[in-house]
């Protein structure tokens, strides 16, 4: 069997006394589009940031393309990350740079392309996410939420990554814009033939993007399977989450 794209084994991560990941294991194969679902604050972003090496797990192993990244030097990590892209929850566009420079950032800084060349690619990628070249010279604070997400998406795919992360791509958008973003994500991932890991608690989005779904609860993956099986998972936690009911095995910490 081929090496998995990402393989996380027995990851532990806590912040101070707060345990976030506890014995977390997850495997993502090449070409899969995995969606991680789970409540707010359960550690979904921490999971992605660990794979990118932005956070270091307290214990455990993370392999990308079969290479251990925990404890890797920042130079090697840069090399691994040059083949991945990420769309951040708030888009995380650089305020001081205009749209095309944001999209071309990784091409100019990382891949050392000439600005002229990089600009052409950036305009092309902006077109891929449905933005005209008019926005290329605008600055991030002149864009709406949906446009920022699109620019963030264009920046994430600009380097033709093999592995792409989407952190809550539809949170904070209206339902129609959400669907537009879902379509774009699906198309971009298919076009690139990339492996994708998406975090969401929006089930419509999950059903549209995912080939696999994994559910995170109390620091562990408690269910992992094909998206077509999600409605008959037989797992009470998953059932409660996708139906969105307050009653069930998942108890929210609500102080009375």
């Amino acid at each position: 069997m081929a090496t998995p794209k990402v393989e996380m084994k027995h990851i532990y991560k806590s912040f101070g006394s707060k345990k976030v990941l506890e014995d977390f294991s997850l495997t993502v194969n090449k070409g899969e589009s995995l969606v991680i679902i789970g409540g707010s604050g359960t550690g979904k972003s921490v999971t992605i940031k660990s794979i990118l090496g932005l956070l270091k797990p307290d214990k455990g192993s993370i392999k990308v393309d079969g290479k251990e990244i925990v404890g890797m030097s920042s130079k090697e990590l840069e090399e691994v990350n040059s083949r991945s892209g990420m769309l951040f929850q708030g888009a995380a566009l650089f305020d001081s740079l205009n749209v095309w420079r944001n999209v071309a950032f990784g091409l100019i800084q990382g891949k050392k392309l000439k600005p002229k060349e990089a600009r052409e690619i950036a305009i092309e990628k902006l077109k891929d996410v449905g933005l005209s070249s008019d926005v290329a010279e605008l600055f991030p604070d002149e864009l709406s939420g949906g446009m920022k997400k699109r620019v963030g998406l264009a920046r994430a795919i600009a380097g033709n990554p093999e592995l792409i992360f989407f952190d809550e791509p539809t949170t904070g958008l209206d339902p129609i814009m959400s669907d537009v973003i879902n379509d774009l994500i699906k198309r971009c991932v298919d076009d690139l033939g990339a492996t994708a890991i998406t975090i969401t608690h929006d089930m419509a989005s999950a059903r549209k993007i995912a080939s696999k779904v994994a559910m995170l609860y109390q620091g562990k993956i408690i269910w992992h399977g094909d998206v077509k099986d999600i409605d008959n998972s037989g797992n009470p936690y998953v059932e409660q989450f996708i139906s969105g009911k307050a009653e069930g095995p998942i108890q929210m910490e609500v102080r009375k």
Binding site: L52, E78, N81, G85, F88, Q109
Partner: peptide, 21 residues
């Protein structure tokens, strides 16, 4: 501001070391 809006994380993912940049 760059930290709390994840722009510093974004630099890392774009193969740019924030200490240098």
């Amino acid at each position: 501001t760059m930290r709390v809006t994840e722009q510093i994380d974004a630099l890392y993912t774009l193969s740019t070391n924030p200490f240098k940049y």
